[in-house]
Design a protein around this nucleic acid. Structure first.
Lengths: 241, 241
DNA sequence: CTGGAGTGAATGAACGTTCACTCTCATGCA
DNA sequence: TGCATGAGAGTGAACGTTCATTCACTCCAG
């Protein structure tokens, strides 16, 4: 935080300090990568600082020059998770039809959460959030951002006739998030949950759950979704980029 | 295990040995209850045996007379969880329409998983299953039982026209389980997720996701679901009970 | 020669587990 | 009845280990 604003303020002499700052940041990220592997392998509390040091190829004393404590490392990981997630949720703002947007987002989310480490880490963060108040505050901030983005998209979709006006938007959004986190946790334990089968089923679920019922759709002037489930959503051109 | 079969074999003289065996079992359950509180509060690895002893009102030495190790306590808790879950999934076998059966099951499941401890414990078990192979084996046995029950119910429902024949049964089942576990984890962090709002949304989701599409339904001779979402499923009379 | 990068042994606390011990009480024997 | 016996319930200090964290130290570039 301090680093970031300092960097901006001295941008004119960036060359003088960029090297050391970047080196420091690179070391921090090396430690974070090692910590994520260890935490995914053993959990926050069973993984020891010695494990992280060994994985990062670094002595304990040196590691403590970059992170004040184990808690600080955990917090940094949760924050990195938040930033990465926030990026994924921007898909919704660039998509006209929120149902297709959610399907696209789900694909991106599930692709991001592949591998051995990501699911274990994600689930560990949630489990820890249910007991550690500081972790919970962090996770809630994360999830409230995502919730706001999804809810706004759904309400926009309702106005434009893409989405059933009868749904309970807040509960629906949280149900979909719960589904996402649940899939992340369950997928590594079921080898038949391949990407394409899950994608197809999720498409069907989203289309049927969120679309206005046929009767209501017929009565609506706005033409709602009529394409097939395999088409990617048509992205709106983004004015700023 | 040994105790159980022994008890059966000497049932004629049960009075002589019933008292000590029951006392032992009562102590074991007292320890398990304490351990569940501690594990829910701090997680499997951060909760210490001293914490559990204090919560159970018992010395460390005595506790080890009832459980060989901390791992053994964790295993016993996971097993108890499995047994309790298996009971809930029997609802499906007593219900003609699996969509209503799943809605009913979801209600029972969410009611069971209330309180402060149950969600934290359930999530902790899943998180631990993603790294500890022994815990994973136990959890997979648990979930495969449930999966089989759900999948059988859905296939039966497809034959009878209650459920869309086009769904991917295995993936759909696992998606619904993921949704359930996700709700358990998310609900404590969102106070608007009240029982009735979640139940209503889940009813809608299940009805729309699983029912045959309107076109297919009209072409089917079997009359599918036509009741409203608030009605409880009509339970079939169970021949054995 | 100064200051940041990096080391690794040392520290005290806390961990899971063990063990020598006491207490209680039903039973066997006088 | 009165007493010795021993098995099971329960205790809590002690064990060796591992933990997160610290610190006196070396190294090296500028």
């Amino acid at each position: 935080m301090h680093m970031d604003s300092a960097t901006v303020m001295v941008q004119g002499v960036r060359d003088e300090i960029a090297a050391p700052v970047d080196a420091r940041e690179a070391q921090r990220e090396r430690i974070l990568a090692a910590a994520m592997r260890c935490f995914a392998r053993s959990g926050f509390h069973k993984a020891s600082m010695q494990d992280i040091c060994a994985d990062a190829g670094m002595s304990a004393g040196n590691l403590y020059r970059y992170f004040r404590s184990k808690e600080a490392i955990i917090a940094a990981i949760a924050e990195a998770d938040r930033v990465r997630n926030a990026a994924v949720f921007e898909i919704l703002e660039r998509t006209e039809d929120p149902v297709r947007g959610l399907a696209c987002l789900a694909r991106a989310f599930l692709r991001d959460m592949h591998g051995r480490d990501a699911p274990a880490l994600c689930t560990e963060i949630i489990a820890e959030s249910l007991r550690n108040p500081e972790m919970r505050a962090m996770f809630e901030r994360n999830i409230n951002e995502a919730h706001a983005a999804c809810a706004a998209a759904l309400r926009r979709g309702i106005e434009r006739g893409f989405v059933d006006a009868g749904i309970d938007v807040d509960v629906t959004v949280r149900l979909l998030m719960a589904l996402g986190d649940g899939i992340i946790a369950h997928r590594p334990m079921a080898d038949f949950m391949t990407d394409d089968r899950v994608d197809t089923a999720l498409d069907t679920l989203l289309e049927r759950f969120l679309r206005p019922p046929a009767a209501a759709r017929a009565a609506t002037a706005v033409k709602a979704y009529t394409g097939n489930a395999d088409t990617l959503p048509s992205l709106q051109p983004t004015p700023s980029a």
